[in-house]
Nucleic acid binder design. Structure first.
Lengths: 200, 200, 200, 200
DNA sequence: AATGAATGAGTATTCATTCAT
DNA sequence: GATGAATGAATACTCATTCAT
């Protein structure tokens, strides 16, 4: 019943953010079904009803966190690409932005992996991917026009880039423990592999 | 109590296979938690106890199916690569083998995607990946020695190939409906992208 | 802690009445359990705590509204019967008064029906009924003494009248929509049916 | 998931009936929301899941019991009326059948009262009433044709009968305790009141 | 080998009520 | 007087697993 665009007090907004933070951590670690609303509340020491003051359902909570995550990733990419002239350079910066983003925020990676698991949310993740692919494909087409990139199916190439970059990230930053040796030169190699794959 | 490598009658083995087939389909479509033992039994019109005659648990059933799938993929790859001399050619054939395999058996792709989603099974999938990566890395190293492949981190390159190929497959064969336009030239583009990424 | 026959400011009394009005509507439409305190407050755009400023509990609020309703009905009946000499005529006027009352205030009918459903309140409704039945039985006894009404169990007759009249009203005014064809001649028929049932 | 037209063993059918009996008692006494699935199971000493082996939901269970009750009432009425020639006599027998039915099965009365409380089920009860009203109205029309019953709105008269009879029953058999003095002559008075109300 | 039946732990959600501000 | 926030008990339903037959 609760939750409409409820006006929040300062205390309320703080609590809301606390919940988001706690839930992000748990969802990333334990998955969606693996995380109960009780877990989230317990980890904050609050009653089991609070979440429903701020969200309509568990799904709504998860959804919001996911969207925030996807938005943050997209922002990072855009910021880095914005001012760059050369399309190939833009692609490179996009790759580096993604790798840096997940290196800094392994939790976000966990969130996205979790989301992709569930049909309810896979759509959102996919939509996020579509956007990145479309952007990248545009850069590629520009590059083809300039003769910098070999002719071919731009969309397919973009998928190749996305797939390998995300796989790199998953393999090297993807463990809950933050373990697995982080390779500093990872970004360089990723760029090398991807760009060679499409350059003339 | 059931299941202890029991000797099966002919009828028994048939039933066992029926269950495997039915479960594969359901797991691939609806995921692990999304598929109940009841679903599997209902889809065969048998009582809810049977599964436990042949397997210890739902997890054991899933696990067996997953292993079979991974094994089948690996076999397909080896068959195609075996007789080939040139390391780069071997890599190419590996890529084509994978794409063909999943094009023919989209259900297997569903199984692997499903498995990768759950911590309980992600390990098995990862182990399968490791093997492929190791194989590919060996080919790459040979190629480097022959001067065909640029110097660099062979393992990283192998991950790049695996990531992009799997992503291609997911994107184009990955829908439950088997739908999405199948692009015949997909394999060619994948090979082009990956090999350029590593060639001298 | 709230509520202790507190002295209300003018604004306070107004607010109190607003709440009564809003709650009456909701209880009548959605039933007791079907109406949450939140619903009542939302429908007025006030905070969820206010109700507890004026009443001790949801039950107390409901109870007050119910009592007011029963009282209003009783008043209407008494006004109409008061000056009438002949006992049979009094009974007729009582019937007409009830029908008119609920025709004018379908919400009150909803309230009473709702109340009768819950053991917690059924007692109050029944007590209201008892009074009406007792009144009517008195008129009947007078009528018997005058030879206008056949001999028999006066109380039972009174119950017959009450039951049929209330059922008429429920059937013809009882829909939430106020719909159902209102039959103007309803009162006439009700009177005919009931009086014949008891006359000599 | 369970429950389709499942084939029941003898043991199964017995258990099913046990549950129906236990639930009827509880629903009649404590109402719908007042009775939890746990209550029903506890009262039989069975696990909380059983009910869901036989019914899809609490609502489905309640619904079945209600329908059975309404059917039983209707059967009783029909049996008693069937062979009777005279329409007025049929009406009388119908009245007596109803009173006897509820006198014998006060639990059924409780069930119907409970059902009428909830919008989800009120429709079914009302439908049951409609049928009785329609039947009675037919008898009344026949009686009018024969000149036995005064002219007037047959449906309205039928409602009058239904209302008063049901109110009699509620008043005198309606307490959980079976208390309230049962008046043996109740049926006679009811018949007298109703028939006079409609006879010429 | 197989079945129908039974179990019961586990979870999202609601809502009357209280409380700090 | 009034509000937003918080509480937590209560409950329907699912499903892997076991068991008697």
């Amino acid at each position: 019943m609760a939750v409409k665009q409820r006006r929040l007090t300062k205390r309320g907004s703080q609590r809301r953010e606390q919940i988001v933070d706690a839930a992000l951590k748990l969802f990333a670690d334990q998955g969606y079904h693996g995380t109960t609303i009780g877990d989230v509340c317990d980890s904050l020491g609050v009653g089991k009803g609070v979440v429903y003051w701020y969200w309509r359902s568990k799904e709504a909570l998860f959804s919001e966190i996911l969207q925030r995550t996807l938005l943050a990733l997209r922002r990072e990419q855009q910021t880095r690409v914005e001012a760059v002239e050369d399309p190939v350079e833009r692609i490179e910066q996009g790759i580096r932005a993604s790798i840096d983003f997940f290196r800094k925020n392994p939790g976000y990676l966990g969130m996205i992996r979790t989301a992709a698991r569930y049909d309810e949310f896979a759509g959102l993740v996919e939509k996020g991917q579509q956007i990145v692919v479309a952007d990248t494909a545009n850069h590629i087409k520009e590059g083809m026009a300039l003769g910098e990139i070999r002719d071919g199916d731009a969309e397919l190439m973009a998928h190749g880039i996305l797939g390998s970059v995300f796989h790199f990230v998953e393999t090297y930053f993807g463990t809950e423990d933050g373990a697995v040796e982080d390779r500093p030169q990872l970004a360089d190699e990723a760029v090398a592999f991807c760009l060679r794959g499409i350059l003339t």
